[in-house]
Amino acid sequence: MAKRARIIVVGCSLFGCAVAQALSAAGHDVIVVDMQEDALDGLGPDFDGETLTGDGKSALVLEECGVRRATHLVAATGDDASNLLIAELASEIFGVPHVLPLVDDDALADILDDMGIAPICPHRICEDEFFRLTGLTRKEADL
C-alpha cells in the first residue's frame, strides 16, 4: 500500500504518541521528533514510522525531518508556546499545508485561528462533544 501523507509529529505527549501510532497504522509516512529519546519509547513496538531525537522548535531539526516535503505537521509538545512557535515555523517559513498545534490556552487558540492555523484544543473539543452527546444547548453568546 502506498503511503498517503508525510506527517511530522513534534512531541511524544500522550496525544502525540496516539496520533503518530494511528497515522502510522493507517499507512501514512510518519516521523516523530522529541527532545527526550526515552519519550520516543512510548510509541511502542508496532510503530512503523521514523523517530528523531531533537528540538522540534529548531528549523534545522525540522529540515532534518524533511519538513519541506511534509503534508502535515502536528505540534504536540506539552507546552503551548512551543507548539505555537513550531506551528508558525512549519506554516510561515516552510509552507507545510496542514499544521495542527495542540494548545490548551484559549487566547493562543484564538491567535492561531486568526493566523489561519487550526488549533487542536482538547477542552474545546470535549465541550463540543459534551453538547453533541447530551443534546443540551449553549447560551446564545457561546454559539
Rank of each mutant, 00 (worst) to 15 (best):
G42N: 09
H72R: 15
I117K: 06
S82R: 13
D55K: 06
P122T: 05
V96W: 11
S91V: 01
A87F: 09
R69P: 02
A81G: 06
A59T: 02
I117S: 03
A75Y: 01
R68H: 02
V103G: 01
L84D: 03
A107W: 04
G56A: 04
P45W: 00
T51Q: 06
M115Q: 12
G95K: 07
C65F: 05
V96P: 02
G95R: 03
E50N: 10
A81Y: 07
S82C: 10
V67P: 03
T71H: 11
V96S: 06
F94V: 03
G44W: 00
P119S: 11
D104N: 14
L102Q: 15
L84Q: 09
L108Y: 04
L112N: 10
D114Q: 10
F47A: 00
S91P: 02
T71L: 04
H72S: 13
F47C: 00
P101A: 13
D48G: 13
N83P: 04
D41V: 01
S91F: 13
A118M: 12
T53H: 05
N83K: 06
I117T: 05
S82P: 02
E64M: 10
H72F: 10
T77M: 06
D46I: 02
I117A: 14
G66K: 06
G44C: 00
D48A: 13
I120W: 09
G95D: 12
V74D: 04
A70I: 08
H98N: 11
G95S: 07
D104A: 14
A59M: 05
V61F: 06
A107K: 10
A118C: 08
V99F: 11
P97W: 08
V74S: 09
S91K: 15
V96E: 09
L89H: 11
A75M: 03
C65V: 02
A75G: 03
G42I: 00
A76H: 01
A90G: 14
G116M: 11
G116N: 09
L112Y: 04
D110W: 07
P97L: 01
